[in-house]
Design a protein around this nucleic acid. Structure first.
Lengths: 351, 351
DNA sequence: ACAGATACAACAATCGATTGCAATAGCTTT
DNA sequence: AAAGCTATTGCAATCGATTGTTGTATCTGT
């Protein structure tokens, strides 16, 4: 026997599990002495097959540890019971999935989806090709798609949403857009943060985040709104990555550079706020004594830091639930509308 | 037309994308005027089909936005290019996926897997049925499985590992086990934490975590080793959930209860350590002045807290890479062995 | 005892792509 | 000009389960 063939055989026998493994419905059918169709119905507990036969088949299936191939079933039924959860990292080549906000929402999504019998296909996409979203949506593997964040891919999302309905996006809602979003009113959130800082007598404000993703941009604009209302100068806009290995360093550099120019920082996320507080502490700048800092998200973490973060709360659990609900409606054929939740200010120790 | 029918039609037309959408290879084949087989080969860029024909088919496919159904393809080629990443929550009914350690490792796994062209199927499993793992492994949807943590499911994992090779588990390695694990030497890690605390003159030690998952148990035993070597009393063992909404409260209760009895806390994870430090601060107990605290994991976060966490480092990036490498070897038919990495003490501010 | 109903199971088409094999046409070689 | 290649394409089986249709006993009612 050729070596290659022998290897192949070895692999195959190694993989073939419990001795005499039943590999498909046809084999089980032969064993029981009925047709494949009957076995299929029996395993589905259909009343179309005799109670006795049904039990015999089920017992034998259990005994041999047989489970029908899901791939085949899903192909036939044209329903995969899989939802894609996708994080587009358009402008964040270096970002990992480690952003705690993403993780928090993913946790809640996982809860809601598994509870409804759906599996989750996770994709971390760096949109290199034009048609990255089309490829995902069109793979035939998914019953629906949840997008976490719009990144800089607004156009691509709109294009696909025009014909692909079962998709819900976490992010900002722009008037007239066709894709369904769930998110908080980011502009209002930014304004709340601004008003909080201003309320503490802060006058030289800065926003720390980035200006590419619509959500973050809105937060900055909200901060500007607040500044304008109070007759303050336009807040600085300091770009950082959202969750990468170099973010701590970037933030430290920003702090070094702006020094005493700024006495109020509205961070684009809790994580950024944490790093900023850390960097300020390292430089002996008191928070909130000399500089006030606000976060955004209100992650569980925000309450556990020292000092505890003052932040803008997005109700993540509620948001995740809203996404899943909207998605299921859309899978069912209803055109569920976007949801915009109201952010609230959580006043703690940093501002 | 009946209302129901009308609704159905409405849904169908709504879903049917760009007008005149091509839905499968057969339709495209008819359009081009060749057979389905040829189209399949052309899209795979096979040299078996004429260059000219190939280009014609590819152009038309692009024009109509046609992408072959992956479900069908995978059924046929018996290779799914999907890896299951599973978190068994045997003893943690309330735990979410929000454990930052899990998230960190998931991020690295996602990087490594997507880079190799694999998708990730995420399962958060509460092992209710006996055969939860068999069900996953046997679904026919996965080329391999990565398990994050052993929870209290050691038996179930061993049982499956006996016949299902392409599986790698993050966790502890017990002598003689058949399943392949990647992880740090948790016992050594526990000992390092203990030695660190003892080195600071701490004498009344406690472990904060739980005693069900082997990893955590090992860490506690390591701490006991260190205590014994130095002739100290057996450290307390304080149970908490690992990452749930009630964990902060539990930890606070522990702190209240043990009060001055304890002057050194080895936490089972960085998250627990953070909460402990927070609870101590709330009660005016100085860290590390009165009580020293060590974490475990060395999450990126640990460096950003105030005070920064002294902790036992598991190299998560390296670990994730090792898991993926071992898994690919096993998918290829090689029996990759377990990997045990050495933990290191990262001395920062809390001990 | 016979029409008609009922219960059960087999048959075969189907989901959509892949791929070994066969078939054809056009070319080369002797 | 016959034999042998090569390049290209079509045909049909296959992956494994589901499900509408058909077929056949068995049973009910008159």
């Amino acid at each position: 026997m050729a070596a290659a063939q022998k290897d192949l055989l070895k692999i195959m026998t190694e993989r073939a599990a419990p001795p005499g493994r039943i590999r498909n419905i046809a084999e089980l059918a032969k064993l029981v002495g009925v047709s494949a169709g009957t076995v299929s119905r029996a395993l589905a507990n259909s009343s179309l097959v005799n109670q006795e036969t049904r039990e015999r088949i089920q017992t034998l299936a259990r005994k041999h540890g047989f489970r029908p191939n899901q791939m085949a079933k899903r192909l036939r039924v044209q329903e995969t019971k899989v939802i894609g959860v996708v994080v587009p990292l358009g402008h964040e080549q270096r970002q990992h999935l480690s952003d705690p906000f993403f993780m928090a929402i993913l946790g809640h999504l996982a809860d809601a989806l598994t509870e409804s019998g759906y599996d989750i296909m996770l994709s971390r996409v760096i949109p290199d090709a034009e048609d990255w979203l089309e490829r995902i949506v069109d793979s035939g593997m998914l019953d629906g798609v949840l997008l976490i964040g719009q990144s800089n891919q607004f156009e691509a999302i709109e294009r696909v949403a025009a014909w692909y309905k079962p998709m819900v996006v976490w992010g900002s809602h722009r008037p007239g857009q066709v894709h369904c979003t769930v998110g908080v009113d980011n502009r209002l959130g930014g304004r709340l943060a601004g008003e909080c800082l201003i309320g503490q007598g802060r006058k030289r404000l800065a926003f720390m985040g980035e200006n590419v993703a619509p959500e973050l941009l809105e937060r900055y604009l909200g901060l500007c709104d607040a500044a304008k209302t109070s007759g303050l100068a336009v807040p600085l806009q300091l770009n950082t990555h959202l969750a990468s290995d170099i973010m701590a360093e970037e933030i430290a550099r920003h702090i070094d550079r702006i020094g005493a120019e700024v006495d109020g920082i509205a961070a684009g996320s809790d994580l950024i706020a944490m790093h900023a507080v850390r960097a300020l502490a390292d430089r002996g700048i008191a928070v909130p004594g000399q500089v006030s800092v606000t976060g955004f998200d209100d992650l569980p973490l925000a309450e556990q830091t020292i000092p505890r973060l003052t932040t803008i709360s997005q109700n993540i659990a509620e948001g995740a639930q809203a996404m899943v609900t909207a998605l299921f409606e859309r899978i069912g054929g209803t055109a569920a509308p976007s949801v915009e939740m109201a952010p609230t200010l959580i006043r703690r120790d940093t501002a």
